[in-house]
Write a protein that binds this DNA or RNA. Sequence first.
DNA 1: AAACTCGTCAACCGCACGCAG
DNA 2: ACTGCGTGCGGTTGACGAGTT
Length: 263
Amino acid sequence: MGRQPCCDKVGLKRGPWTIEEDHKLINFILNNGIHCWRMVPRLAGLLRCGKSCRLRWINYLRPDLKRGGFTEAEENEIIQLHSRLGNRWSKIAAHFPGRTDNEIKNHWNTRIKKRLKLLGLDPVTHKPIEKKGNSGDKNETALESNSPKGREDSMEVNFMDNYNYSKKDSLGTEEKRDKVELNLEETNDLLNNYDICWGSLDFGSWMNQETNTNTTYSPSFSLENSSNPSVGESSSLQEWVGRVDSLLSWDGFSYLEQNIFFL
DNA sequence: AAACTCGTCAACCGCACGCAG
DNA sequence: ACTGCGTGCGGTTGACGAGTT
């Protein structure tokens, strides 16, 4: 007999999560921990499957998530780890506290892969791509280098620098570079705001206390072993939820506050 | 202004794995 | 050893916004 589906999909909601759903999930997990993902949606009053809840929590709602773009140092480390580990994203993510495997995978597929190709490196083998002399050859790199500028860049980059990116970006203009740096500044401002919100609560230690787990970061973060937050901690949890509310502009959900489990 | 293209990333799918019975 | 279940993982999809024509 075939394997049972992870959930009964009939009547379940799919697609992007609403703020209300997020709120419900966060409140439920903070109050009850996670003992069985399959039960979470039902107990939390969500029309989602357990898998979807797990994914949402791990990739987006987890309080210890690090937000914002990857730094160049992080990118370089990802590349080095990928050369050793291959597409084992969860293993790679284990080296980046606050980053998820999904995030790293996405970043790899959308950014790093292209940069490596521009550098003349095969993103799979991490070795220089052999130039195929035949004009008929149409590998991806060749296609991406179709533009004169693309070719120019790949020529001028010394790929044996081993992942030390050229000072110029793929477009090769200082103007573009300035733009990127500007955006980074904006991002940093945003991150600072995040730090203000998240940072005042020592979530790392709270998590460790709650989970009684090892001190090393696990990308497969789970509250499975956690007991319910004790009464003494509920105030800081409330504080956190309050901050989350303001952070995510959950103005429209104040009514939920009245129904929050631990109030 | 509309149509189209492209890049990004959240979310889904299905298989693999580990564990308990 | 086998089976069933819950979870983890990696590949893939599709919605959406930004940029371009």
